[in-house]
Amino acid sequence: MVSALFAQVKKGEEIAVPYIAYPIKMGKGFNAVQANCLTCHSFGYIINQGPQSKDFWAGKVVKMVVHFKAPIDKKDTQTIIDYLFKHYGNGKLK
């Protein structure tokens, strides 16, 4: 009962979390997305939000800056919002 008799991972061994190449769309602004977003999360996190409005994507990027303290400058912020809406938007501004 005391020791970790049932551990799936042997004592002292490290786990390795795999990297998955999510099929992100290429286009204008992608460099800014890669440089800023990928530091904290995968492209999967973006493409699995579903198609969203421009306001939604703007809100998400601003949340990263305001609440999560991502150092994204003003120019890149707009570039990223435009990219996300173009490729993962639902065509609606609001």
Binding site: V17, P18, Y19, I20, Y22, S42, G44, Y45, N48
Partner: peptide, 9 residues
């Protein structure tokens, strides 16, 4: 079903 690898979802 794997939505993200980092963080894992």
């Amino acid at each position: 079903i794997t939505y993200s690898d980092r963080p894992p979802l």
